[in-house]
Write a protein that binds this DNA or RNA. Structure first.
Lengths: 215, 215
DNA sequence: GCGTGTGAAATGCTTCACAGCG
DNA sequence: CGCTGTGAAGCATTTCACACGC
């Protein structure tokens, strides 16, 4: 019986890491499952199951030792030497992402950005160098990039995705509002702003559409 | 037995709508479940279940009539007269969202943006008027806004969320990298770029962490 | 006690498989 | 026949509940 490595669990583990950093900043060196559960809005049992999977060899008296957990999470989530990530599509959203990730931790670094518009090539935005699409293969290869964020217009997304897959990319974070068809072995995660907003709007309706309540 | 109105179903229905617009642009007036399934990367049974829930009274011979489906979806997802939405936090990401939604359909309109920085008040970005935080309550009230996108720094998110809830907001699309604690009755959807990127990076690893294969 | 680790039950979501209709 | 609509089966994920260690 495989010990549960689903996408949902991975997401939560990434969240635990951020929470644990806060906890450590508060000077605590242990947390127990209910505390994490409360912060994340879940149940203690769930937290324990998730943490179980990363085999944290911890005592049991007063919760999990924060540093040990952080180490285990890094071992689970991160590449040993960090990882380079690329962005394709330097529009409004692409620039916002560059800004956002330029200040994040050392593990995932956005080190190359690409755009169809050759005029952007050569510039440096938020510490990240820009290239034209013709350099795609070369740069991905040189920087050993396996993971790409894609913020191109809907009409170009499929074509770009195929090109990326051809360059050996194994994971795509797709912000374009279209489902991608990629070869097997390539993981695609989609962030669809329109769908997300429509969902929130749906569940903010006063009545008739209200969410199902228990009993 | 409640007919399934889960968040997942609502997301897919929103996606079907977009696909159906494409289909109609191609001149077709009927689609069958496999066609939709293929486009969305799911199964035909799933599509049929989803569509069932919006009670599409359609014949059965050659699939669903596109126009009828679109009408039913609009009835299901949209407010009758459209809906105003606000943005709080006019940073890089906030501006990108304004640009993005300024060209979307008529149902959800971003009609007000707020920022702590009073210097931004009075400006108009991508067709959307900006206000200082002190006008929050008044403007939300005047425009009957129930749904808000939040792109504020992590440290301010909780405070802003509470203020929003106090103004009668019922749904928040939260881009800040913190879980929100809100009163019951307020729906929160989170888009967490860091978590999303870490997830993709995780599943792009060559081996050892590979996703579970069947058999 | 207080909190972890974990089988076992419960819940929720997806897929199967087939009746029924045009 | 092809395709929809749908009970029922099959999986996945979450929660319960309790043994065990400090």
């Amino acid at each position: 019986m495989p010990p549960r490595k689903s996408a949902l669990t991975v997401e939560r583990i990434s969240q635990y890491r951020r929470l644990l950093h806060d906890v450590r900043r508060d000077g605590l060196d242990h947390v127990c499952s209910h505390q994490l559960a409360e912060k994340i809005g879940g149940t203690a049992a769930q937290v324990r199951r998730d943490l179980m999977l990363l085999g944290c060899a911890c005592g049991s008296r007063i919760g999990y030792p924060v540093d040990c957990l952080l180490a285990k999470i890094a071992e689970f989530l991160d590449s040993p030497k960090g990882e380079n990530v690329a962005l394709v599509g330097i529009g409004n959203l692409g620039r916002a992402l560059l800004a956002f990730f330029s200040m994040s931790g050392p593990n995932l670094r956005v080190t190359a950005a690409f755009d169809r518009d050759a005029a952007k090539a050569g510039r440096v935005l938020y510490g990240c160098r820009c290239y034209g699409m013709e350099d795609l293969e070369k740069v991905l290869e040189t920087q050993s990039i396996r993971t790409v964020m894609m913020t191109v217009p809907a009409g170009e997304a499929q074509g770009v995705a195929e090109k990326l897959a051809g360059c050996g990319v194994r994971g795509i974070l797709n912000f374009a509002p279209v489902p991608l068809r990629v070869p097997p072995g390539v993981f695609v995660e989609r962030i669809d702003m329109t769908v997300a907003l429509e969902k929130v709007a749906f569940f903010s309706r006063p009545a008739g559409n209200e969410e199902r309540d228990k009993v």
